[in-house]
Write a protein that binds this DNA or RNA. Structure first.
Lengths: 181, 181
DNA sequence: GGCACCATGTAACGAGTTACATGATTCT
DNA sequence: AGAATCATGTAACTCGTTACATGGTGCC
């Protein structure tokens, strides 16, 4: 759903060929966002058709099959990224989409993320509160069976995730407060 | 990809109708695993065809459209869950699939997760090390631009995630060590 | 009577995944 | 000469999502 925007943002950071994009998505970008080369070529074709990106073929003398095509984002595409960041309403579970938005903000921001992050923080706090209540209700017995201990471990994974994300989000919110005047 | 197994595990915990399953996936289960009622009905149909689950219609006198169908896991299905837990090789990114496996282990375990978790821990440690290296290489300058600070925040999100997962995983590993004799 | 909830499904679409396919260049 | 890498794509399939569809029960 956000794959085309992930590609656009990657192209904003650095104009690339489909092949180069695929490598970037295999390395650094791939740590939090995946896209195969098939997806990338498909989306690049669509985005050229939509007028979001332009393509320049390098080395016109080489045969077509090997010719490298370098894609770069056009103003319309840039606007589309800004629109997407502003208008796509995330939920607290869309952590990697938020990181994607942050990357967009880093290249062409500020894009108003200081409005969205506090909402996500509230949502995460509410979720954490729910988890704490389940913890009290279901796992406060002095001894737990093996099965219960494992179920408790699953809940703890959720609690840890929320807590550490909240810490990070609070730090990051301050960054955005300073940046988005 | 693991949706049918998620449903099987939920049914092992408690035999349910499609509707009840949908509600469970909307509430507690839904915190880390999603499935819509359309998916659920589709998979239940397939799993009956595969002989993994059996269905009993309640209230034979009621009209067919409203009759509640209660599904329960057959021995073959139970074996399939055990096989899936043992044979599906996860990567460190498949956090929620690991939680799913833990849930399976809680109902019909031990299933040998004490073998898999250490491998995932090693993988996460290696990932964390890579992040730390990127941190040293790209973000140790005394002052950073707004864009760099945001990129650093993205990296920090990854670092925090790995660190807190590793803490949790280490605690959980001890649980499994005791359990899987 | 109408609204919310219980309970089951089908159909169409879009996106991601896997497999297939071709050809040039560079290194051993 | 062969393997790895560069570089581009097509085709088939499966899964998840959205929309559609039906009908009963219980409450105000």
């Amino acid at each position: 759903m956000s794959t085309p925007h992930a590609i656009l943002i990657a192209l904003l950071e650095k104009p690339s060929s489909g092949y180069d994009l695929a490598r970037r998505f295999d390395r650094a970008i791939g740590y939090f966002w995946q896209a195969t080369h098939q997806q990338i070529y498909r989306e690049l074709g669509r985005m050229v058709a939509a007028g979001w990106v332009a393509v320049v073929e390098e080395g016109a003398t080489q045969p077509a099959a090997t010719r490298k095509k370098v894609y770069r984002v056009l103003p319309v595409g840039r606007e589309e990224v800004a629109r997407w960041v502003r208008e796509t309403r995330l939920s607290a579970d869309d952590r990697n989409v938020l990181l994607l938005k942050l990357r967009a903000d880093a290249v062409i921001g500020p894009l108003g993320l200081d409005k969205e992050l506090p909402r996500l923080i509230d949502e995460a706090r509410a979720r954490l509160k729910t988890y704490r209540e389940i913890e009290q209700r279901d796992f406060s017995a002095p001894t737990l069976t093996r099965g219960q201990q494992l179920q408790y471990a699953i809940l703890k994974a959720g609690i840890r995730t929320q807590e550490s994300w909240l810490e990070w989000a609070d730090e990051t919110r301050q960054l955005l407060d300073n940046g988005d005047a």
